[in-house]
Design a protein around this nucleic acid. Structure first.
Lengths: 125, 125
DNA sequence: CAGGATCCGGCTTGATACTG
DNA sequence: CAGTATCAAGCCGGATCCTG
């Protein structure tokens, strides 16, 4: 049982009581944009601007913040090339890759749940 | 791609762009207390007061709100008994039960990631 | 190109008191 | 017992402007 006080873009991250590894895990990947970012990096190594374009609606600020957190948490690897203009790219780490089957499963569940709810709403009318 | 405007205790729920079922799923189970509640109900059918005691730190208000959302989303079933004093209990629905293997996997991953990070921090010092 | 810094509103959460 | 109502505060995320 511990409290996390570091700055974070994720409200779930703060003052969260880690009684179990489950909530700990959700802290790491929960949040407004993290799953988007991670799933975009599933197959490719992408640059900052590519990520920005790939994730519609995200601001540079948010992308920066979330990337920084993900890096600190060991989920992505940031590579800076000594070039002009500057070039940075991001890729998943091994431990992040282990999450892929999980979010695939969540994805499947999400689709199923969605259909289920839609049917239910129709039959109510 | 749709936006959700309903009231919710979960900021992730609002104005969320559902491009994929993955983020949709995270909306449903993400949030400050939802996973705690769900995991407490994994094996037992619990009453309001039991849940409150089981989840340290949660206020009645938050418990009420999150339970209401979970019910609306079809993840828990609420049963009211016509007794005095009143009695209500909560249990997982079938579709929520399908999430169990997923959060078990997340739990495992969380533990692994945690150890990994701790080792990393130690070796840095 | 890849960010950093700052300001700010709105939502989420919490504390507390009250009720059928 | 199982909530509801109200008030207050803290945090996230967005907009905008700036830099190496």
């Amino acid at each position: 049982m511990g409290k996390i006080k570091e700055n974070s873009t994720n409200n779930i991250n703060k003052q969260y009581i880690y009684e179990c590894d489950l909530s700990y895990a959700v802290c790491k990947i929960g949040g407004r944009w993290k799953l988007f970012i991670l799933s975009r990096l599933k197959d490719d190594k992408l640059r900052f601007s590519e990520l920005k374009r790939a994730i519609s609606g995200i601001t540079e600020r948010m992308l920066t913040l979330q990337l920084k957190e993900l890096e600190k948490e060991g989920l992505i690897k940031r590579t800076v090339y000594a070039e002009v203009p500057p070039r940075v790219d991001y890729e998943l780490t091994d431990i992040a890759r282990e999450l892929i089957p999980i979010w695939d499963a969540l994805n499947t569940w999400g689709g199923k749940h969605r259909k289920f709810i839609e049917q239910q709403e129709q039959s109510e009318e």
